[in-house]
Design a protein around this nucleic acid. Sequence first.
DNA 1: ACCTGAACACCGTTCAAGT
DNA 2: ACCTGAACACCGTTCAAGT
Lengths: 179, 179
Amino acid sequence: MPRKRTELDRDEKVEQILDYAVGLLRNGGHEELSVNRIARDLGLSRAAVYWYFPSRDELFTAACARLFADAFSGPPARGGVASRIRWGVDRFAAIYDVYAALLERAPTEQAAADLLRAFDQSLCRRLTDLLAPHVAADQLDGVVETIVVFVEGLLGRRLPAAERNRRLTTALDVLVPEH
Amino acid sequence: MPRKRTELDRDEKVEQILDYAVGLLRNGGHEELSVNRIARDLGLSRAAVYWYFPSRDELFTAACARLFADAFSGPPARGGVASRIRWGVDRFAAIYDVYAALLERAPTEQAAADLLRAFDQSLCRRLTDLLAPHVAADQLDGVVETIVVFVEGLLGRRLPAAERNRRLTTALDVLVPEH
DNA sequence: ACCTGAACACCGTTCAAGT
DNA sequence: ACCTGAACACCGTTCAAGT
């Protein structure tokens, strides 16, 4: 089947570009993800990349989806509520710079907005399950929403992990008094 | 006094460049602040700008200082605690994109970090004065810190003003119960 | 269908040379 | 002291031309 064969080749090439893009994202963030750089390192002409991705922004968004999916994989932390939340925050911190770059693009790029929405919902769901036994039912949604937004603000500061955890603890003491 | 005259001329030129840079920042944010653009529009060669500012980043930080100082000028809002906080958040929202760009540079640029620190302290001081009558003294610092960080997270979402205010209200209900 | 080479319109920064 | 012109090393994107 020659048609199938071609599609497979194409998928492999897309895969190769995407994988390399994720690597660049992990190292140097959004700035380092350059079409020229990918083409050079992969032995293509710059224009060839545009055969597989219509723009740098769409390639960036696709690479973000991969990165985010990987970020929260692995076994979640054990222990109390606070230490489980800290685990999630640490994972989030590792990808925050890329997340912030995506936030910046979301107003003008639908795919970016969709990915962020899905990511946010996934965070809220996990946190809701975690906090349900410790927060009054009529306050649960508000507390979850507030914590997630607070954590994003906290990560924006790019503080050292110790100071970040101090502030997180302070906030959790106020928001979830009996945990 | 020829020496004085020269310094004045220099200050005027610095002023002119800075003013124009702030204008670019107000319109298109960090992306639009380009050395080439400034040189072209002001009738200079690109290299001439570097006689007054050592790099694009330092020019950006200097322009940010101007922008932030202007942002919270004017009479503060009247009314209850919630509506005064909303006023501040709306002002903050107007400069948030620039603020986020500065946050990104703070880890590698001292001047940016200093400006952000001063800005943050000013916000915390104002909010502390506002909340002192409504929050227990031993919780005041924690609540103020949490609200400021929450607001930064909220602005990062770049939501429409109505949705932003909804979420702010939800958070304030949790954080400042009897306001 | 897939890819190249060249072009276009941009960047920030440096530096020898001019006044 | 102040400024220019040219150069360097980058960007993202488009497109006619090749296979």
